[in-house]
Amino acid sequence: MSLPLADDEEKGKRFSCGCPEYISPSRNYGIDALRIVAMMMVLILHLLASIDVLSLENHGSASYNVGWLLEIAAYCGVNCYALITGYVCCDGTFRYERVVSLWFQVVFYTWGSLLLALLFFPQEVQLSNILHSLFPVLSGQYWYVTAYVGLFFFIPFLNALGNRLTKLQFQYLLVTVFMLFSIIPTLLHTDVFPVEEGYSIWWLGILYMLGMYVKKHGLLTGMKTRPLWMFYAGCVCFAWVFKMVLNVVSPYLIGQIKGGGMFIRYNSPFIVGPAVALLLIFSRMHFSSRRAVSCISWLAAASFSVYVLHCNALIGKWFLWDVFEWTASSSSALMVVNVLAIAAVVYAGCALVDSVRRYLFKLMNVERGARAVTGFCGKLGHAFRKMCRRIDSHP
């Protein structure tokens, strides 16, 4: 699973990982709050998957029905991050060292988890675990990180496109791409123009452009916050009711339970809609309390590390998800409470670990290393371009 990797800068200003001494008037702390909520959604998705409450074996039980409602309500979390990236990055100054810093962060956790596993559980470590940990981005251990890193290199060109399009042209572009990659595939229940149901760099690019449009031109600006919440709830309830009804009807029609997940995929309009609604709702939020801003800033800065830690193939499996199977055996109401509480605890625990990581990175001056790597790659690129010019000019 993001989800997620929204940019930590806005309008070219560096995001402080610590508690801010003042409330920046140029920073939208509502967007930071959405980062936290979106990561909580991702945690909920993974928790529900780990306790196996959503499998057809539990069909007809209250836990199954309530679990799927919670699943659909949280499913837009990954889309939220891509929207936030477009919303934030479209006006910022693009720097390649940011993707290098991102890679350093992933390597820190994957190599660190591999070391811990080799020390304490060497018998459980396989060759595939070692290769995936050593090459986390290239191996696709985190599909969102791999897709996001690829997207990062296209961001300058997407920004150039968005800045040159008129509002009407931008609208035509978005309508076209969502018709081709969202509405038609959902209605036909097949990936006509493959975006792998949203698990791809191309889908992240589409959401990036949508987030950019919201920031530059606005969307549903005349709609108040309450109708937006109702729109979010309406999309979730429709997808859930459709699944529940089809689960009952499909055995009589085709002899098996099938097709209920038609609207439950990242590129479904009923998943994109709630993500857009949340982006609009949170972008309007304002916080006047310095304490609230401090808490939001600290938790939002850790959101990426929360993702990397809890999705890690070694640490996430042994220390997080396998110990929560008991959650599924409780009542449906208690299950929801447990899932939400556990997600909050996992988030807080990972955020504390990330505080240590940030401290170590500051001591090692990792940002300077990222600039050095970027500078070296820039020199290689310059040498390559120079060689190409010589080849072109050679008779």
Rank of each mutant, 00 (worst) to 15 (best):
L5G: 04
D8E: 12
E9K: 15
G18H: 11
Y22W: 11
S24G: 04
P25D: 09
L34W: 05
L34Y: 09
H46F: 02
S50K: 10
S50H: 06
V53T: 12
L56E: 12
N58R: 13
H59A: 04
A74R: 09
G86L: 01
L102R: 00
W103I: 14
F104D: 07
T110L: 03
L114V: 00
L116V: 14
P122V: 01
L131D: 07
Y142L: 05
V149W: 03
V149S: 06
F153C: 00
I155F: 08
I155G: 05
A160C: 11
Q171E: 15
L174H: 10
M179Q: 11
F181G: 02
T186N: 08
P194I: 06
E197R: 12
L204M: 14
Y208E: 02
L210G: 04
G211N: 05
G218T: 12
M230L: 15
F242S: 10
Q256M: 08
G261Y: 02
S268K: 09
R284Y: 01
R284D: 10
S289G: 08
S289Q: 09
R290N: 06
V293F: 05
A300L: 05
S303H: 06
Y307W: 13
V308H: 05
K317V: 02
W326C: 03
S330I: 02
V339M: 01
A341I: 02
G349F: 12
V353W: 03
L363E: 14
V366A: 06
R371M: 04
T374C: 05
T374G: 07
G378S: 13
K379S: 09
R385H: 08
M387E: 12
C388I: 14
R390L: 06
